[in-house]
């Protein structure tokens, strides 16, 4: 299988390192930053070759570029006959990528939209929780931490942009940085304030769970981040944002009883996003995904991705005893 990774930032380069370990994959890479591309090619020696921005000749094209260019690159990749895996986490990219559904179906190709940390891992955890329920009523997503600089910039943009929640059958705009909620993540993240922000997870989940009365997402931020979200970033973002976590809470009914399931994963967002994307690449390479453009909650049985992730050291946890702690 020929795989092209477009974008060699923090997440893209980690993904390329994962993919080059596979004997089944013939890897090609591209980055607009020639210095970075040369450095990664030198690191990979003979195990990767350079390619163009649309990954010509590849069976699967992975888009790990900053927000903005995903739909154009995905369209070109589809025209070239390749499946697409996008790690884009901007609402605009996700919305536009979903519009490629018809084209992807007509070409019998798949576009995995939001195949990273959040969205991505969040969609898999929600689907896993929802599969255990008879009926899904509410879904709440939360994300803590950022990956590389592009992810941090997107986080900053999201905080000052309106969120879109699915409430009682309608999309409702909520002001970015509003609706503070104290959420508990697993250690070492712990309790963090989380706010509304322009996050794409609800867009992807609503397609799978349109009957849910509420689908909402929040992102953690410090008070300083929230206060300065309307300003340009005051200092350059870190190369890697450090430890992070995602947390999903799915409420619904099972055997007539109301039940809440909470799952979380704690990991460096760039590491987890790269691991998720690598598993999605393998899934598409095996031809196990339906054609069309969709999020990971629609792409496959979540266990086919979650099992290898956990086996490879991504730590997933579930919260037990919520009912007894409330009463």
């Amino acid at each position: 299988m020929r795989v092209a990774v477009i974008g060699l930032g923090t997440t893209g380069s980690q993904l390329a390192r994962l993919l080059r370990l596979s004997d089944q994959i013939e890897l090609s890479i591209y980055d607009t930053n020639k210095k970075r591309l040369t450095a990664v090619l030198a690191e990979f020696a003979d195990s990767a070759s350079p390619c163009g921005p649309s990954g010509e000749g590849a069976d699967v094209v992975v888009l790990a570029t900053p927000a903005g260019a995903h739909v154009e690159l995905a369209g070109q990749a589809l025209t070239n006959g390749a499946h697409v895996v996008s790690l884009g986490d901007s609402v605009q990219d996700v919305t536009n990528l979903l519009l490629l559904d018809r084209k992807a179906r007509s070409l019998h190709l798949s576009v995995a939209v939001g195949a990273g940390f959040a969205p991505g891992l969040t969609c898999l955890l929600v689907r896993h929780a929802a599969d255990a329920l008879d009926e899904v009523v509410e879904i709440a997503i939360a994300k803590a931490g950022t990956g590389g600089p592009a992810c941090a910039r997107q986080h900053h943009r999201a905080m000052k942009t309106d969120a879109t929640d699915w409430i009682d059958g309608h999309w409702v705009a909520r002001r970015g940085g509003s609706a503070r909620d104290l959420l508990w993540f697993p250690p070492p993240i712990g309790a963090r304030d989380a706010y509304k922000a322009a996050l794409p997870s609800p867009l992807l989940l609503q397609r799978r769970y349109p009957q849910a009365t509420r689908i909402a997402a929040r992102v953690t931020a410090t008070r300083r981040d929230r206060l300065t979200s309307r300003l340009p970033m005051l200092r350059p973002p870190h190369v890697d944002g450090g430890p992070g976590a995602v947390r999903v809470e799915v409420r619904g009914r099972r055997d007539g009883q109301f039940e809440t399931l909470v799952y979380a994963v704690m990991e460096h967002p760039s590491v987890a996003a790269a691991a998720v994307a690598a598993e999605v690449v393998n899934l598409l390479g095996r031809g196990q995904a339906p054609s069309g453009a969709m999020g990971l909650c629609e792409l496959a049985d979540p266990l086919t991705i979650l099992q290898p992730l956990v086996a490879n050291g991504i730590q997933a946890v579930t919260f037990v005893g919520a009912a007894s702690s409330v009463t």
């Binding site: 799952y263 956990v310 946890v317 037990v320 005893g321 702690s325």
Partner: peptide, 10 residues
Amino acid sequence: PQTDGWREVA
């Protein structure tokens, strides 16, 4: 509480 909390998904 000694029993409730985060449990690793195995």
